[in-house]
Design a protein around this nucleic acid. Structure first.
Length: 482
DNA sequence: TTTTGAGTTGTTCGA
DNA sequence: GTCGAACAACTCAAA
């Protein structure tokens, strides 16, 4: 008599290690059925973007291979989540479904309706933690409310005992006689024509194994000086773990404990490790905000920003210039082109490009948020929304209104040799460092010697920063008036 | 209840 | 060239 299998429904938790939902299923001793459902239940604008779909394809391939090695294939389905789970459960006689909790508003809705629909069919749904260091509803101020400022949130979080990672199961009992579903290729997640992802391949290797290599490499080298160098886009200084975390190929708890252990063993590198852990806590804080303010991705957290006087004229052409890295400000263009060609942008440059769109161009932050959502391989609803609002000043714990990045100053400070610009804006590569952050100020003969014709080979700045800054300050001043 | 201290990431200007 | 102050006022969190 066959035992009833347990379905493990995978979403943004594409790993075997530190996967409580999977481990609990394996520990039951029953057969397991790992299941992925291609079902974009996210509302329109939040469908997975192109870059994320590319990543998802390769991540699923890696997960499938790892599962095979542990003794079971990954089953794929397409369609409505609840219907497909019920169908698969009936096909194989499963009465239990395990899944990791997700925190996007639509995912929370799905989990609730799923629980009801499944229980109507006599199927139990068990949800497990795993995507975060702690559950967003477990952290609260003394009065029981959500935190709205990062520092006190961090103070409390850093005192919590973070869940210990559970090891990957060595052997998974497969479920037999599972009807065929679509293959991974049939999900059609990769770009066809044009195949823009060719420039992603040399940089990124999706999958759990690669995520762990990335973390270990980071611990061995760059974490020790992370606190000093993490703002330098020209240096290999950051962990590059963001897409792996976004798809759950590695758990934040795993990263947290690894960093903590590293700090304990290498006191010299403890500062870097702590700053890295604080970055993990920023991710956590973003989820905390999203959990308590579901409209965070679309509505300004501070309501007075509903009335912000955004620019109307010529908005489309400047947005296009920004997206294509044709603003005439080299550090901005380098960042936007890094995003376009690699699906990722350095954190410091994300702030610079975001500040430019919002404050120099006076374009609503939601436009930038949508573009990042479509083009980032690490697109994450909570981090993306919280960060764009933070730059706009409309969010929790927001930047003061007068904090307007000067793209030239920022470039000189954080890309002092211009190496980052030269990498992503090759038409400027011959320009001497002295002029590389502001080519329009370079003498004509220097431009000529560098093969640059402003307005032809590289754009003249689409706005004049000093004037744009004054305009932004005036726009922000209107918020105070009422 | 009221008070107090603090709040990721900046720029500019004038001494 | 360097350095400190100004740039608002407000909200948050805890005592």
């Amino acid at each position: 008599m066959a035992e009833k299998p347990i379905i493990v429904y995978f979403r943004n938790d594409l790993r075997l290690g530190d996967h409580p939902a999977l481990s609990a299923a394996v520990a039951s001793g029953r057969p397991v059925l790992p299941l992925f459902i291609a079902d974009d239940n996210a509302p329109g604008p939040w469908r997975r973007g192109g870059a994320s779909r590319w990543w998802l394809h390769h991540s699923l391939a890696a997960l499938g291979a790892d599962l095979e090695q542990s003794g079971t294939p990954l089953t794929i389905r397409r369609g409505d989540t609840a219907q497909e789970i019920v169908r698969v459960a009936h096909d194989v006689g499963a009465d239990t479904v395990h899944m990791s909790r997700c925190y996007e508003p639509w995912s929370r809705q799905l989990e609730h309706s799923l629980k009801d629909q499944l229980s109507a069919d006599g199927i139990t749904l068990n949800r497990f933690a795993g995507h975060l260091l702690s559950e967003p509803d477990l952290i609260a101020t003394k009065t029981g409310g959500p935190y709205k400022v990062y520092t006190p949130f961090w103070r409390q979080m850093s005192t919590l005992a973070i869940r210990r990672p559970v090891p990957a199961p060595c052997k998974i009992r497969p479920t037999l006689n599972v009807p065929d579903g679509p293959t991974l290729d049939e999900l059609d997640l990769r770009p066809k024509k044009p195949d823009w992802a060719h420039s992603f391949r040399p940089i990124w290797q999706p999958g759990e194994r690669s995520a762990r290599h990335r973390l270990n490499a980071f611990l061995e080298s760059d974490i020790a000086r992370y606190h000093e160098r993490r703002d330098r886009p020209d240096l290999p200084a950051t962990s590059l773990l963001s897409p792996h975390l976004a798809f759950g190929e590695i758990s934040p708890a795993h990263c947290w404990h690894a960093a903590q252990m590293h700090a304990a063993r290498n006191p010299a590198g403890a500062n870097g490790a702590e700053v890295f852990m604080k970055e993990l806590a920023w991710r956590e804080f973003s989820y905390h905000l999203l959990f308590h303010f579901e409209d965070l991705p679309t509505q300004p957290y501070r309501p007075e920003f509903q009335h912000f006087p955004w620019a109307e004229d010529g908005a489309e052409s400047v947005v296009t210039a920004w997206q294509r890295g044709q603003t005439g400000y080299p550090i901005v263009d380098a960042g936007m082109r890094q995003l376009w060609t690699t699906g990722w942008m350095h954190n410091r440059v994300r702030m610079i490009t975001a500040s430019f769109l919002i404050k120099d161009l006076l374009i609503p932050w939601q436009r930038g948020e949508a573009w990042f959502w479509d083009t980032l391989v690490d697109a994450d609803l909570a981090s993306n929304a919280a960060s764009w609002q933070w730059v706009a000043g409309s969010g929790a714990d927001a930047a003061p209104y007068f904090r307007i990045f000067n793209p030239v100053t920022q470039g000189r400070k954080f890309d002092p040799d211009g190496a980052y610009i030269r990498r992503y804006v090759p038409e400027l590569s011959s320009l001497p460092t002295k002029h590389i952050h502001a080519p329009w100020l370079a003498p004509a003969e220097v431009l000529a010697a560098s093969g640059i014709r402003l307005g032809v080979t590289y754009p003249v700045p689409i706005v004049e920063h000093a004037g744009a800054r004054a305009r932004a300050l005036a726009a922000y001043a209107t918020l105070k008036a009422n």
